[in-house]
Write a protein that binds this DNA or RNA. Sequence first.
RNA 1: GGAGAGGUGGGUGAGUUCGGUUUAAACCACAUUCCUGCUAAGAAUGCGGCCUGCGAAAGUGGGCCCGAGGGUUCAAAUCCCUCCCUCUCCGCCA
Length: 431
Amino acid sequence: MIDLAQLRREPDVVKAALARRGVERETVDEIVALDVEHRRLLQEAEGLRAEVKDLSRQVGDARRGGDLDLAETLSATSRSTGEKERSASDATDAVAARLREILLLIPNVPDARVPDGVDETGNVEMRRWWPGIDDGAEFPTFADHQRVPHWDIGLALGILDLESGAKIAGSMFPLYRGGGSRLLRALSSFSLDRQRDAYEEIRPPSFALTETMMSTGHLPKSADDMYAIERDGLWAIPTSEVPLTSLRRGEILEESALPLRLTAQTQCFRREAGSAGKDTRGVLRVHEFEKVELFAYCTPEQSEEAFNDVLTRAEGVLRALGLTYRLLLLCAGDLGTASAYTIDLEVFSPGVDRWLEVSSVSWFRDFQARRANVRYRRADGTTALVNTVNGSALGWARVWAALLETYRQEDGTVVLPEVLAPYMGGDATIR
RNA sequence: GGAGAGGUGGGUGAGUUCGGUUUAAACCACAUUCCUGCUAAGAAUGCGGCCUGCGAAAGUGGGCCCGAGGGUUCAAAUCCCUCCCUCUCCGCCA
């Protein structure tokens, strides 16, 4: 949720910033008007409410004093004032509801560093990394045996069984076998262990209440992108960002506890509505995948450092795995609803010959904290909303694909980096 | 899933029988100050959150919050309804 106080202070600045994200100025004007109207009605209702409270007190005094006639007169006055109060309150609530309805659909104000653009074509590539780059190596030229798409490798080695996955749950629900399954398990453990020095490991629920989904900004806007279990009022989480953001929902944290860094590996569920048939071969786009997330609650002052730490760690995993990747600075039009600033990490997949998004590192400023009501107490005793930051390290399905292709040998086997061996029972070769 | 007990401010905990003299007592913890003086004790004061009015600010006025949401009433922590959570026992179960 955007900051209404800021909107009152500098409406033109907010309007201009939101216009870059496609929010019409008239919509913002309506918010301002509703806000003014809401506060006017609120004052009226509260004034009447105060009158009723005062009269009720007098009724009590009169009755104790034995003056029943006076008590009855005061009661009658209070009753009619109460009726006025009720209608004023109803009007106030109606405006508040309308205001909230609009506000929940307004995206975050983009940071000044975010480039203009209406969709992914407006994103800006920041830099690329590949093994040996620090020693002057050129961008890798992948050999023919690496130019085989992962779905062919997976089939040949018997480690990816899309047919069985489809039989069980439908298309885009992959099923991994043997070394393929072992590799996925290894990746999560490998990444989680790397974060132990600064991030607490969490195992959250895979489902969340509507209220929880509201906090991150996934609802009400993206309901169609998520799986719902209507009977129980639950949603399948699309990322562990959802449960982690609500872990301290409604709490006031001590400033000394910040930044509070968390990491979690969860299943992630996405309906991918509207993207059927688009880039869906193999595991390029799936309904269920595993992902390790890095997350931090922090003060505004700490947010830049917290963001950079997440980005550095996400990059660190890709580097440790020896994969080629690039950083994209998302433009205003491609930014997620809740984000003010996002950098995507894309791994290069030699077999598919494409860059695949495997992480999205985002700074939400206080947008999610306002929805989730997560605050902290400053040294001077006042409270303020925290900032939230998160990023994947990493989304495994696509990393899995890039690993198979990058490390495929001429004989068809896959020899993975030695760092994974301890997590795969001592043997990092898939044959 | 069934039965019972319970959810009050940072913590403990009173108030709920019979709605109004409590706009939530008391204690603990915490903060500041004072006294004393040394690894302790005592005293005073303060002690939440959210929304909102006035004010340049310091400040000051109003409203809301006793698990959540409704209802009754001039008036609800207190009465009624629905739901959630915790604990105990039973049932079921990886």
